[in-house]
Amino acid sequence: MNTVDLINKLAVNHDITTGRAEMIISILVERLTEKLKKDGTAKVENFGEFMVQQKENQSDSYMKFGEIFPSSRNQIMFIPDKKFLENINKDSG
């Protein structure tokens, strides 16, 4: 499944144009990422929670000075909701 499928599904289910469906999804993604960048977490009901986790600093040439150089990468984690997990584990039992 990709975004096009999602757009088509929304357009059919809610009787709206694909352009509108695309805009709605864009708004949702934009809000979600903004909130994630701003607060470091974004929780969606019945879906899951997005979190920004900071990785530990990696050593490089600057480390010999003992400074804390911001070479770390922030990792985005997703913790699925129970409902989400139940859905994908239906078939496997």
Partner: peptide
């Protein structure tokens, strides 16, 4: 609409094992 978006994503993941959302 809001709920249906996430339900569709969940359904897509359940069916195809992957859901690719742009951006």
């Amino acid at each position: 609409l809001y709920n249906d978006i996430f339900e569709s994503i969940i359904q897509g993941v359940a069916d195809d094992n992957i859901a690719d959302i742009t951006n």
